[in-house]
Amino acid sequence: MSGTIRTGGHGRLGSVLSGLAVAVGCVLFLGGFAWGAVLYQPYIVPTDSMNPTVTAGDRVLAQRIDGDEVRRGDVVVFTDTTWGNVPMIKRVVGVGGDKVACCDADGRLTVNGTAVEEPYLRSQGWGVEEAASPSEFAATVPDGHLFLLGDQRAASQDSRVHLQDAGQGSVPRSAVSARLDAVVWPLDGLAAVDRPQGFAELPGGVSQPGPVRPLAWAVVGGAALILGGAAYGPLARLGSRARRKATARG
């Protein structure tokens, strides 16, 4: 009788733990999705102007932010009437008060006279560094504005083509609605959009990564707990039947 009691106790404990695993898994899974939906907006990249960082057709997650949170180096989603009044994706290379110019003797972008290393300009992984711009330019960014360039500098339609407009090609910070954090498609795994360290030494530094990775782990971990907890019952019944058959044969 004591053996039966121990077995039943273990079974009840297993059922309680499996139920707890499913409950915690549901909280993590649904909570991760819900919080992600609040923080992030999905976008489809429309052009190759940000190649090779992101390419046309990539599905990306952009964190909803206020324009005041933008730092140099961020890849942002913005909408501005001068640029066609449609959402566009570009990289911020200058903020209010900056003097942005190109190129120095080594073909680099300069911000307030400081040359900026931009490793994301490497062409398609071939190891060939592009000049920061195929044409020279210089602009002073008005307060409260941002100067934006595409990573595919030879083809991008960006602040350089709006230099004669008011603001010397810059857009107001208020035009920004989100900052890219990750590429989720193609499915090569979750690829974070890194903050470039070339801007880190400038005043204000670079922005911190968003919470996309913790949210992804919460969703994946929650799914694993749900599946594991749900599988306990069928596996326990199979084990019980196997033990009864072994006892009957004995």
Results as ranks from 00 to 15, higher is better:
Arg108Thr: 02
Ala175Thr: 11
Ser123Gln: 15
Ala231Pro: 08
Met88Val: 05
Gly36Ile: 08
Val70His: 12
Ser174Ala: 15
Glu117Leu: 11
Ala132Cys: 15
Asp68Val: 08
Ala248His: 11
Pro42Leu: 11
Asp165Val: 11
Ser170Trp: 04
Asp165Cys: 06
Thr4Ala: 14
Ala223Pro: 13
Thr110Asn: 07
Ala62Leu: 06
Gly233Lys: 12
Lys99Glu: 15
Ala182Arg: 04
Asp74Lys: 02
Thr7Val: 10
Arg244Ile: 07
Gln152Ile: 04
Arg173Ser: 11
Gly36Tyr: 05
Gln168Cys: 10
Ser2Trp: 14
Leu187Asp: 08
Phe29Gln: 07
Thr114Leu: 13
Leu39Glu: 15
Gln157Thr: 12
Ser49Met: 07
Ser49Arg: 03
Asn85Tyr: 05
Leu121Thr: 05
Asp66Pro: 07
Tyr120Phe: 14
Ala155Thr: 13
Ala155Phe: 14
Asp66Glu: 15
Leu121Asp: 01
His10Lys: 13
Gly205Arg: 04
Gly73Pro: 01
Gln168Ile: 07
Arg59Cys: 07
Gly167Lys: 02
Gly73Cys: 05
Glu69Asn: 11
Ser2Ala: 13
Ala37Asn: 09
Gln63Phe: 00
Arg153Ser: 04
Met88Pro: 00
Ala105Tyr: 02
Pro234Cys: 07
Val171Asn: 08
Leu149Arg: 04
Asp106Cys: 03
Arg237Asp: 06
Val212Tyr: 01
Asp194Ala: 13
Gly67Thr: 10
Val22Met: 10
Val76Gln: 04
Asp181Thr: 09
Gly25Val: 01
Asp158Phe: 08
Ala166Leu: 11
Gly94Tyr: 05
Ala246Ile: 10
Val184Leu: 10
Pro46Arg: 03
Ser133Trp: 02
Val212Glu: 03
Ala200Glu: 13
Phe29Met: 13
Arg122Tyr: 11
Ala132Gly: 14
Arg64His: 10
